[in-house]
Design a protein around this nucleic acid. Structure first.
Lengths: 238, 238
DNA sequence: TCAAAAGTGTTTGAATTACACCCATGT
DNA sequence: ACATGGGTGTAATTCAAACACTTTTGA
């Protein structure tokens, strides 16, 4: 069997990404998880919303491809990026056989509000941020993929410190708690949350305080880069 | 860009599997994790040991491909099979670009000792079972892959009941504990282990006892198929 | 009857939860 | 001064580890 024969038998390879950001929800106004989707302009599933992604360039690492597609659709760089799963069931594409290697990413709300990129992206009618708990019908098996990514994010939130990836450089503990509450979808005891974070050693006080609040000024914190913010698997950071 | 152009740019796709079984170690005689490796008969890495695997057939699901390669090299069916990771870094293959979707599998020691298949496989000089903690130099990045699979197995052992996949249909609690101890590499308190397993509801007593031991006959158990033996991720069983 | 593994009971300490309470600031 | 979120203290509870102890068999 020649190489070209083998290549033609091999299914096409694509890389997609589930991108999470925290934004105020349209309905409740509270912070909620949002993900960007792109409208498909060709068959199959023309007109449906789908995860950003595309083919893998010949000389490109998988994570780089995910990052590249992410940047071109959202104009944002991920603060966290991790492989989710490879989806390759036969029936998933309708047309040609496609194996999708899917990543999930977090982008910082601070970055998102940074400059005019938000407006720029919003102006593209084929890219739109949706509330993760209120999605339209998606193309392919992308709904399954998003559900799995959501599960992974929420699970990981409870044993790692990825919440930091959602927030800016300096922050209050209340702000960090807000992130946890928005992602997990439940309220957390401020006292216990404080102890949990402080005992984990993942943050260090900057010594400064946030003023201008109507009440007692909260202490500002920064990440402790000395400790690993993700999990201790032997593959390390992507 | 035509489809054929795109396909030719797309890297080749392969599926490999890290297969774990428990066998008595050559050195200590105690149960230890072993994995089967195949000797490469072509460049690159000719002569080196590598994970069983190969190309993905055009009409084949990813997990089916993993299962197929597993059966052809070891003559065993997996009692557990799960996707591990997709490895696609540029430099990993030396020759053409290959993206490997790697699975990890468990096979039951009972199955392995079942019939003449063991001898059959042992007779093939290009397939050999190695102690997972005493591996030869491997081809490609397969050493990294095995280390990651080992980490996943040991991590999962602590919060799920995959240990059952290593053992036969009926078993004693001491036998199940032996599996845990061999995989985790440390001794466990028999009393606490018993309570842990019983409270998890994952086993049910058969009512029978194992006789012929030099001491008090232990009660025999069976899996409780009513409870999920793996983790509750929304993708379900592979 | 004795050795050894099966199986039970109890104590300890760590970690999580719930919640009462004080502190400090803008209004 | 006071309302409100920042921040601290502490009791109740749950959970896992450690280990003493009793039971049952073959030799």
């Amino acid at each position: 069997m020649s190489d070209s024969t083998l290549a033609s038998m091999s299914p096409a390879l694509a890389v997609s990404t589930v991108v999470f950001s925290l934004m105020p929800s349209d309905s409740t106004g509270r912070m909620a998880l949002h993900i960007p989707l792109v409208r498909r302009i060709r068959e199959p599933y023309r007109g449906r919303w789908a995860l950003p992604g595309g083919p893998l360039a010949a000389d490109e690492d998988l994570a780089d491809a995910a990052r590249r597609h992410l940047v071109t659709t959202t104009a944002l760089s991920p603060t966290y990026l991790e492989q989710l799963y490879a989806f390759g069931a036969r029936g998933r594409s309708l047309a040609e056989r496609v194996v999708s290697i899917v990543y999930w990413a977090l982008v910082s709300r601070a970055n998102a509000a940074d400059d005019a990129t938000t407006a720029l992206v919003q102006s593209d009618p084929n890219v739109c941020w949706f509330d993760a708990d209120d999605l339209p019908e998606l193309a392919f098996d992308h709904r399954t993929i998003v559900d799995y990514a959501l599960w992974r994010l929420r699970t990981k939130m409870e044993y790692s410190r990825i919440a930091h990836a959602f927030i800016g450089d300096t922050f209050t503990l209340a702000g960090l708690r807000e992130v946890h509450e928005a992602v997990l979808g439940r309220e957390l005891d401020p006292a216990n949350f404080r102890r949990m974070v402080e005992s984990s050693d993942s943050v260090v006080p900057t010594g400064e305080f946030l003023t201008g609040t109507p009440h007692r000024p909260p202490r500002l914190y920064r990440y402790n880069h000395a400790v690993d913010l993700v999990d201790p698997n032997p593959l390390g950071r992507t």
